[in-house]
Design a protein around this nucleic acid. Structure first.
Lengths: 147, 147
DNA sequence: CTAAATTTTAGACTCTTACCAAATCCGAAA
DNA sequence: TTTCGGATTTGGTAAGAGTCTAAAATTTAG
C-alpha cells in the first residue's frame, strides 16, 4: 500500500477522483462537469492534472479511467470520508448532515489521524455513508474489527 | 452576538486575528510578521484587509487594535479551536497533538457545528488548549454546563 | 460525408498568500 | 530642533487553485 498522506491532491481534485472511482469504468468529461456543475473545460483541466499525477488515465476525447494507484487512493479517500462522517454522527448529526459536513472537513484530516480515529472507534464497519473498508488499513488486525 | 458563520476571514487572517486578540492592546506589524515568519509587507497587507472587514483598527505606522466585532469574532475562533481540540483528544490525541491538528481542521468547522459539538460534549469548560468560554454561546443555558 | 455534439485548447480572471524593493514615516539621539 | 535609521507601507510581481468564455479540434450520428 502506498504511503498516502491525504494531501496528494487538492480537495477539489480528490472529489473528482472519488466520483470517477465510484462510477467505475470510463467516465466522460461532460458527466463530471455536469455532476460538479462546472464548465467542461474546467473538468478537462482538472482531469489533466489528476492524470499527470498518475491517479487516472486520460484518453483525450474518450474519457478517464482509474489507475491502480488512483484506485488505492480513492479507497483511502472514501474510507476517510466515512470515518469522518461517523465521527460527526457521534455529535448528533443526522447521516446526511454528517456526510455534508464531512465533505468540508475531510481534506484537512491526515491519513494518520484517519487511522487513529478508526482505531479509537474500534474499526467500525459502517458509517452513514456506507461500508468502511479495512483491507489496506495499517492499523487493523482482523481480530480487532467490530462486528 | 453577531451571526458569525466561521467563514468571514480566510484561515490565515483568522490566525492573525487570534494572535492579535491574545496579545491584548496594540500590536505592531513587525511583531506579527515575526510571529508568523512572514515579511512585514505581507503582514501589512493582511492587516489592512482584516481592518477593512472591521475586525481590527489599523493606525498606519502605529499598529493594530481589536474592535468590538473583532473581539467577539476572536473569542468565537478560540472557542472553536478549543472545542475541536477537545474532540480530537477524545480519539486518543495528546493535548499538543490535538492542538496542532485542530489548527489544520478548525477553519472548516462552521459555527453551527461548533455549537453542536459543544452541546454534545455537555458544554465543557476546558480543553487541552485552555478554558472554553460560553458567555455568548447560543446553545448554552447556564444549567447545562459541565462542572 | 457532413453537420451536430463533445472535448480540448487558449487566454483571462479572481482569490489567497507571499515576496522584494522603494518610498514613507516616526522617534530618538545629538 | 534637525537628522539618521529602523519600522512600516506601497506598489509591483509571482505562484497555485479554480473558474469561465470562445474558438479549435475531434468524434459520432444521420
Amino acid at each position: 500500500m502506498q504511503e498516502f498522506t491525504g494531501d496528494e491532491l487538492s480537495s477539489r481534485k480528490a472529489e473528482f477522483l472519488k466520483y470517477i472511482h465510484m462510477q467505475g469504468n470510463v467516465v466522460k468529461t461532460t458527466e463530471i462537469a455536469a455532476h460538479f456543475s462546472v464548465a467542461p473545460s474546467t473538468a478537462t483541466k482538472a482531469l489533466g492534472e489528476i492524470a499527470k499525477a498518475g491517479y487516472i488515465e486520460h484518453t483525450p476525447y474518450h474519457g478517464v479511467k482509474m489507475t491502480t494507484l488512483g484506485t488505492d487512493y480513492a479507497r483511502f479517500l472514501i474510507r476517510r470520508h466515512r470515518i469522518v462522517a461517523l465521527v460527526l454522527s457521534r455529535y448528533g448529526l443526522e447521516p446526511d448532515e454528517a456526510c455534508r459536513e464531512a465533505k468540508k472537513i475531510e481534506q484537512c484530516i491526515s491519513r494518520d489521524l484517519t487511522n487513529r480515529m478508526c482505531m479509537s472507534l474500534g474499526h467500525p464497519m459502517m458509517s452513514g455513508c456506507g461500508e468502511i473498508e479495512h483491507d489496506h488499513c495499517c492499523c487493523c488486525p482482523a481480530g480487532d474489527r467490530q462486528g
